[in-house]
């Protein structure tokens, strides 16, 4: 085990996969010479050269199409999109190419690329650089969408994503990059599509991904002081979703709070709520509660942004209301 920052864990995963497999290459805006805005690709150009680590012009649309064609022709590209807010520019390649080529060509085409991006609020980055567009991505059948919350999962899941033959969108969070945690050494992968129970509890289940897992864990501490035993399930993958883990937890607690940093309407939290009702309706002792961003742009003003973002305190309030 080594203590690592989340960004360092991602860097280690990229380095190890590039060392192990010459078909892995990375590209994106300012990821080479500069080492990436969040320093995830730091030192890679020095080690692997300008062919496998490419600085590109600003054109997310062209970059994603490039990832698609490179993946189809036998390489394993890892594309960095600097902000999740720019994901809409990538959607045509994801919706009309990456996600369906395997299907329309009867399995003859593999699509082993990873699209890394980071989103989320709390950094005072304003309405164009703070969004969480998980729902928009998880809506597309044929691609995987994952959002690890710990450095260990960040490393293990990025390695698994690079080796996956399907397109994987890898969602990071700007406020997670500097969080630290133990990371197993060596070639350890974490399977995509498996949730992790980070804290066992008996009264209520809280489901979250990415930075919201950190908030949920804080909420569990607050709730413990309220005399409530909360179970925290880090879903880790938004799609495929570990439905069994969700149902198992609800079968134990009979109460659920679902947390997502994205917008509420048609959002991922709504999908989770519906999934719970599909599979565990008869286990529910109260309606499922959603904690999400309100349906508004994210303000630049720090107090206003703080007021809007889902937080430990909001999760606690929702949990207590659910348990009434």
């Amino acid at each position: 085990m080594a203590m690592m920052r989340y960004a360092e864990a991602l860097n280690a995963a990229l380095r190890e996969e590039m060392q192990a497999d010459p078909s892995v290459f990375v590209f994106g805006e300012d990821i080479g010479r500069y080492g990436g805005v969040f320093k995830v690709t730091k030192g890679l150009m020095e080690e692997f050269g300008e062919t496998r680590v490419r600085d590109t012009p600003i054109s997310e649309q062209a970059l994603t199409a490039m990832a698609v064609t490179a993946a189809m022709t036998g390489t394993r590209p890892v594309l960095e999109i600097m902000y999740a807010d720019f994901v809409p520019l990538t959607l045509d390649a994801l919706v009309n190419q990456a996600s369906i080529y395997n299907y329309i060509w009867n399995g003859q085409v593999k699509m082993p690329f990873v699209l890394r991006t980071q989103g989320g609020g709390g950094a005072g980055a304003g309405a164009q650089h703070s969004k969480s567009l998980d729902s928009m991505l998880a809506h597309i059948p044929g691609i995987k969408v994952v959002a690890p919350s710990t450095p260990a999962d960040a490393k293990g899941m990025l390695k698994a994503a690079i080796r996956d033959d399907q397109p994987v969108v890898f969602l990071e969070h700007k406020l997670l990059y500097n969080t630290r945690g133990e990371v197993p050494e060596g070639d350890v992968t974490v399977p995509l599509g498996k949730a992790a129970t980070l804290r066992e509890g008996s009264d209520i289940s809280i489901f979250a991904t990415s930075k919201m897992v950190v908030e949920a864990l804080k909420a569990a501490d607050l709730l413990a002081a309220d005399g409530v035993s909360a179970e925290i399930v880090d879903l880790r993958s938004l799609r495929p979703l570990d439905v069994n883990a969700i149902v198992a937890s609800i079968a134990k607690t009979h109460h659920a709070v679902v947390v997502n940093e994205g917008w509420r309407f048609c959002g991922y939290a709504a999908e989770l709520s519906a999934t719970i009702m599909d599979h565990a309706f008869d286990e529910l002792d109260a309606p499922v509660a959603r904690v999400t961003l309100p349906d508004m742009p994210i303000p630049y003003s720090e107090p206003l942004e703080t007021a809007m973002l889902p937080s430990a305190e909001k999760i606690r309030t929702a949990a207590l209301k659910t348990l009434k």
Binding site: H254, F281, D282, E283, L284, D285, A286
Partner: peptide, 8 residues
Amino acid sequence: VASPLARR
């Protein structure tokens, strides 16, 4: 008015 679990 009962929760699904209570009904079951």
